[in-house]
Design a protein around this nucleic acid. Sequence first.
DNA 1: CACCGAATTTTTTTT
DNA 2: AAATTCGGTG
Length: 722
Amino acid sequence: MNHDRDSDILADSLNAAQREAVEAPPGPLLILAGAGSGKTRVLTRRIAWLVRRCDESPLAILAVTFTNKASREMRGRIERLLGFSVSGMWMGTFHGLSHRLLRRHSEEAGLREGFEIVDSDDQLRLIRRILRDMNLDEKQWPPRQAQWFINGHKEEGRRPADLQRADRPLEEQLRRIYREYENACRRLNVVDFAELMLRSHELLSQNETLREHYREQFRHVLVDEFQDTNAIQYSWLKLFAAGHKNLFAVGDDDQSIYGWRGARVENILRFQQDFPATRVIRLEQNYRSTAVILKAANAVIANNRKRLGKNLWTEGEAGVPIRVYAAFNDNDEARFVLGRIQKWVGQGNPRSACAVLYRSNAQSRAFEEALVDAGMPYRVYGGLRFFERAEIKDALAYLRLVSSRDSDSAFERVVNMPPRGIGGRTMEEVRAAAKAQNCSLWSAAADLAQGRQLTPRAAHALHRFHELIETINRDTAGLPLEEVVEATIQMSGLAAHHKNDQSERAEARLENLAELPSAARNFTHDGDAEAEPLVEFLNHATLEAGETQAGEWEDCVQLMSLHSAKGLEFPLVFLTGMEDGLFPHQRNTEDPMLLEEERRLCYVGMTRAMRMLYMTHAEVRRLHGREHCTMPSRFLAEVPEEFTEHVRAAGRTSPPPPPSPAKWTAGHNWHSAAMRPGARVVHKKFGEGTVLQMEGEAKVRVNFKGNIRWLMVALAKLEVVK
DNA sequence: CACCGAATTTTTTTT
DNA sequence: AAATTCGGTG
């Protein structure tokens, strides 16, 4: 066997299947890669292989990932393998790459130069404004529903023009809103996330010259997390790969957890139909977890019916059992987790080797409090990210207005932030004037500041604002980006505004603002140097919202949602909040399809663990300020007993803090002890049923032989069957 | 127009 | 529980 350096780097320590994937001849390839089976390794080695062995230029490769984090990581690994920088390579998220395409060909794509990307927050804001313009009541037409409708259709590649007139009034109205929304986006020269995909797709499918150009350039297309692609993304991939058919897709149907945002696992099946010559390679050997953890996870996922089917195995040791802990309430759960982390760290293990996972970001709170109290450094991923914070977005809006006066969304955002006497009334006038003259808010405001329509006071305020932006622009011209940002924060009055506010929150805001200039300095615009740095920075901020907390280099306990944990691994994992209603989430318990996605999420969570896995649940959980009695997650019951060990509350003899006295004196509690989820009850009219859920003491949700309804305990005269 | 307190309402997950 | 929105007052 040839043992030159290349084969060491590229093929060493690969198993047969991995090696087969890395070294496969060109053509459509589908890699079904189970959790921990070395998927990223195969992907990075494949790219290195193409460059080193097949003499492909890195520029001939299009590599698509799902998250920015994954993209960064992969780039780093490839550069380590190759030993040189691949900064020009087309590697990134679907959205990032689409953005790059649209920047390059904005004119062909029907966008004006300097178009702006809006995040979902801005999108919702815009939809609200449209509803107002259409004279629609937000109560009757919830903006969120419209947003969901619009994004859903875009993800399927449908424009308003593609939608039929609907018979149902609701749908017809939503269609109209979508149409208005699209007009507004065009007018404002803004692009939302879904639009990035859709428009770049249209650009290539309608422009043959460009399509051929890129097909020629990208001789190899690779995609990670293929199971999470939606209809438009899959179609987008095919646009590039249809000619040479060198599409290398890596995915795992058992880890498809983005169905709620349009992802289609079926793409894995369609792949083999669309590319009949597809070679399928399965990676089933797991290198990550102990046998116990792996078998338990396999047992859970086996309850899903809709699977391609695969069985992960490991040569590794059995390991210790999965520890299950039933906490009294969420604080007790946090205390328990903290205790175990302290023990673990006390044994000399790094904090960064343990992760606390939860279904929804709101659950991080209790853990954060416990960790803060104990002085344990931690880091929260997800949730509200740096560039999504209000104060940061305010500052960015000033910058945007400075760089392009016609950005109406930026204008709306900062015209009265900090307060400068331009309120709703004045803005109504400005909006009306802008509409009448078909111009931007900025120029309408400029006119009004001169004219006589407004009260002198309002006109003066507008004039001052106008001056302010012009001054910032003049004074920062030619400065480096970092200093532009710094100066804007100061001159805009944002810094002073938050400084005046003595509250703790304002202090944190000020700190965040102080970090923005250095974020700008660290920003190296990777794409084409075509746009001006400020514009690039602003779009970067939207597209890559940034991590939540700084201090990445400190050794920290990791807190994150199950969704953001995908692709990661930790020696010690806590899977928390294992309660029915929370996980699986209430909304996803009825529909089997949705329940299966929840189960896959559970599978993802369990398979993050390398050596030790804890699964915890609380018997009482606070949610929206109310206490709920809960039942252990059905997923817990799916973990075979032979792999688990129940942990008892150590050092605690009495149950946790007694319920507040007020609660006990409130009536109807003679049966409240028995009235808990799982109890059998009899109702005069509905007969016998099972309590599913309780809301405080007052309401119960009961399943009467499939007839599920909410009842008031005080009124329903339920009797608990002993 | 701004400010304050009351009322109302939370969709899980992310680009 | 918290955050945002609403409505009334100064």
